[in-house]
């Protein structure tokens, strides 16, 4: 396959950035999207040019490091798939592919396609945990958790924190990410003591980071590589209202 890439290049956080065009000849349909970029980068390095910076780590769809908005869709055209798991057979010979970074005020560009997602870490620090006392470890399975709750908590815990929801949202809202973290704990007994406080603190932290508001476009759900459902957003709205009504707004 021969492809044309239009890649966002930005020298640093303060550079204005621009789309640059690159040829990608002889691409195998069996390559992953990131392998295709590796090949392009090798050629750039051989030609003495600066390679395209992009984030990645596990390359098996579990770490949440890879990103890339591909032809306007975070993680590219294949549903429920991270960029590292996307294969070039999803494209046709002769295609032009636009590659842009996650775009959000709360995700500033570091270089090219690499953005700083530490705003997510600060939201987790604000409340995305369950406090436990140290001491003897409790017996495994001593605390019973209903199958439905365990399954729902696990669905929410599938979030890898990649930020595709923010990238996809026309308002750059982080609702799906925060709602997944809130739902994860809200369905487990260990999450109950701090439930109200956690919801309010994480929402406040999300606001302080400069993410937008949710308008129920549901683009996040469609872009999420882990298919986190938007019902968690409604559930978080409910939890937030309950927390405020109970006077536990922190």
């Amino acid at each position: 396959m021969n492809l044309t890439l239009k890649v966002w290049r930005q020298d640093g956080p303060n550079d204005a950035g621009r789309l640059e065009t690159y040829d990608a000849p002889d691409v195998s349909p069996d390559m992953s999207f990131l392998e295709m970029l590796d090949v392009v980068n090798e050629r750039l390095i051989n030609e003495g040019r600066t390679p395209i910076e992009f984030d990645h780590d596990c390359r098996e769809g579990i770490c949440g490091m890879c990103s890339l908005v591909i032809n306007g869709v975070p993680h590219g055209p294949q549903r429920a798939t991270t960029t590292c798991q996307l294969h070039m057979r999803s494209f046709k010979d002769g295609d032009t592919i636009a590659i842009e970074p996650w775009r959000a005020k709360a995700f500033p560009v570091v270089k090219d396609l690499v953005v700083d997602r530490s705003s997510f870490d600060r939201i987790i620090q604000a409340g995305g945990y369950a406090s436990v006392n140290t001491g003897g470890a409790p017996d495994a399975n001593a605390m019973l958790i209903g199958k439905e709750d365990a399954d729902t908590a696990f669905d929410a815990a599938a979030c890898i924190g990649c930020g595709a929801c923010v990238a996809a949202c026309p308002n750059a809202s982080a609702m799906l990410f925060v709602a997944a973290k809130v739902a994860h704990y809200a369905h487990l007994p260990q999450g109950q003591p701090e439930r109200d406080r956690r919801t309010v603190k994480m929402v406040n932290s999300m606001d302080a980071e400069g993410f937008g508001n949710c308008r129920n476009y549901y683009e996040c759900e469609a872009a999420c590589p882990k298919e986190i459902p938007v019902k968690f957003i409604g559930n978080m709205n409910r939890d937030f209202i309950k927390a405020v009504a109970a006077g536990n707004e922190g």
Binding site: W8, G72, A223
Partner: peptide
Amino acid sequence: NRAARPVRYAVDPGIQ
């Protein structure tokens, strides 16, 4: 919402 995305996407077809 506008301020939350200072730089717009060049390609932005939307999904759903």
